[in-house]
Write a protein that binds this DNA or RNA. Structure first.
Lengths: 336, 336
DNA sequence: CAATCTCTTTGAGACGTTTCAATTTGGGAT
DNA sequence: ATCCCAAATTGAAACGTCTCAAAGAGATTG
């Protein structure tokens, strides 16, 4: 099953290889008659041009890579989808790689994308990855960092003001009258988590009479949330927080599940707020108060910045920071 | 920023290009001293081998593609993840493409994977895609169809017995005493949907005294479920189904949300069952009865079958069909 | 000391494509 | 009949890599 190449097509159609290539890339330069012969040769042979050959010659591709920590978190899946949609409008294809939050795999896929000479890279990560991306960029592959603001002016990024988001959530809980508040999340080495906590702390401090308990839970998944939820639900009411703020929606959903299973009423007995505003937050049976980041423009902004930077244009605003928006739902204010 | 190639490395290290290539691929064949020089040259130059060059020479790659209809459906995200995990154990990389249920985009990515000469393809699709895959296979790219059983003996597939799954769900609802049952889903052109309905119908018929109302909803998402849920909740109780069986969990979750919002009690007023058993089904505040397909081995089976077929081995069992398992939860039997 | 043998190193050639400069063709103007 | 021009076609060269056959350099053996 020897792969069929452009030469075979040319031979069968009785034309030169250059003509076949022209047919493929500049159809207007080839006569109708030969076009037909070539088309039929391609069909009978089942010719599929080799991207390796083309790329070798051209030196570039039309593919961009999206490296996500965890596609099974709907948050990233939703970002992936909006990126994909925008990219396809611009005639580009998106290849998705799932690092599974693993540093090594992240590195591996980054390397692979480089070897593939993707045109550009979109990277969501919980790691300190900026230095690595600087290397990649220097070697010719530009990238947009998504989800954490870059430090370096060279590294383009699109992110959310997580400090402000955390502040908004806790401010909201304080406004509702809660004073014993818990923050669930970790590890603090992750910028996104640290920022959300920082905002939460700031709100607490400026209020004065409230307290913030920090409960470490590095496993920011539904399962992780359930673990925490079980523990909290088991506490006697007077030492149980009046409200919990989870570092992301998955945690919050897991926590809520255990609260409800334990017979606690949300939000009367305990209020819950999440972060990211994934679709499942809005659709939970007790809809979840959360922080909406990527309003419509997020995926677009990412891809558009990437195209700018791929084109070599200087970026006016290298670090685009969106302001998050608190979405208040039943899990904090009850059925409206 | 001219790309640095293997020649540049060779020049800087003062060796022949062949030696550099050996260093990369057969490190044991090159002396320690030159290995060091080459390593340092690679580092200072920031050399990253071009996969295009390599692939052109070798004709094969170590990448497999996974084409999913919709990564933002956790069902596919979970499959993607298990595939990725297994593939990486076997030293392969997975590239994910999201067709967004769009026939055209599906075609586009399939073509792209072919041009990239991926080693093999894993395809989840709601379309009749077998013929297309036959073409792809004939041209040298093997594939495993996931989620629908293939018709052709040449097309390897891993799937679930959806007829049996549908039957189990409805049998369960009948056993609980429900007689007016509704099936939500569509379009019937989709094999998975049609099979689930077929199983449901079979169970109803063999029972005799029960009725099955089919409510078409092609948008099998949470939003789609909410639309249906609103309509059903608005019906007077005597024409409202006693139980609904949704073609997938997203639909079911959306439906439940509206039922609860309308004040209906689940399962006392109306029972709900879904299909796929995504994590959010188990974690819903009223946990959702669903059908578990891909128990542990699913992703493994897929990748292992793909490696077999990539190796050119004949497959003993070309169409592997897993038997689904009903997972009974609160949405049908109430709090246990 | 010659003859082998092993371990390294070398450079050419091929993979499939696109582009570019050069050539052919056909038709209209002179 | 000749010339010219545009349009269509051609073939060679180059992209970056790996492998293969061959050669070089020591080391070991007879």
């Amino acid at each position: 099953m020897a792969r069929v190449g452009i030469r075979d097509v040319a031979a069968l159609a009785g034309v030169a290889v250059g003509t076949v290539s022209h047919y493929l890339n500049h159809p207007d330069r080839v006569s109708h008659e030969k076009a037909l012969r070539i088309r039929s040769a391609i069909d009978t042979l089942g010719f599929v041009p080799s991207s390796a050959g083309r790329q070798l010659r051209l030196g570039i591709s039309t593919v961009v890579g999206y490296l996500a920590p965890d596609v099974s978190n709907p948050y990233f899946a939703e970002i992936a989808e909006s990126i994909e949609r925008r990219a396809s409008e611009l005639g580009m294809s998106v290849l998705l790689a799932n690092s599974h939050r693993d540093r090594e795999r992240e590195d591996h896929y980054l390397q692979m994308f480089e070897e593939y000479r993707v045109r550009g890279l979109i990277v969501s990560s919980h790691q300190a990855i900026e230095e690595r991306l600087a290397g990649v960029r220097q070697r010719g592959t530009p990238s947009v960092l998504v989800g954490q603001a870059a430090r370096s002016p060279e590294q383009v990024s699109v992110s959310l003001d997580d400090v402000d988001g955390g502040r908004q959530v806790v401010q909201h809980l304080l406004d509702l009258g809660h004073r014993r508040i818990a923050f669930i999340g970790g590890p603090l080495a992750i910028p996104q988590v640290a920022d959300r906590l920082a905002g939460a702390s700031a709100a607490i401090e400026s209020w004065g009479t409230a307290s913030l308990e920090v409960i470490a839970q590095a496993d920011r998944t539904i399962a992780g949330g359930r673990d925490v939820g079980r523990i909290l639900a088991a506490r006697p009411a007077d030492v149980r927080p009046e409200a919990v703020f989870a570092a992301n929606d998955l945690l919050a959903l897991g926590i809520m599940h255990e609260f409800v299973a334990a017979g606690l009423r949300i939000p009367q007995d305990i209020a819950v707020a999440g972060y990211d505003d994934i679709e499942f937050a809005a659709s939970s049976l007790i809809s979840l108060t959360s922080v909406q980041g990527r309003h419509a423009g997020y995926g677009f902004a990412v891809v558009d910045m990437l195209t700018e930077v791929m084109a070599g244009h200087p970026i006016a605003e290298a670090h685009r920071v969106f302001t998050p928006e608190l979405v208040v739902r039943e899990s904090t204010v009850g059925r409206g």
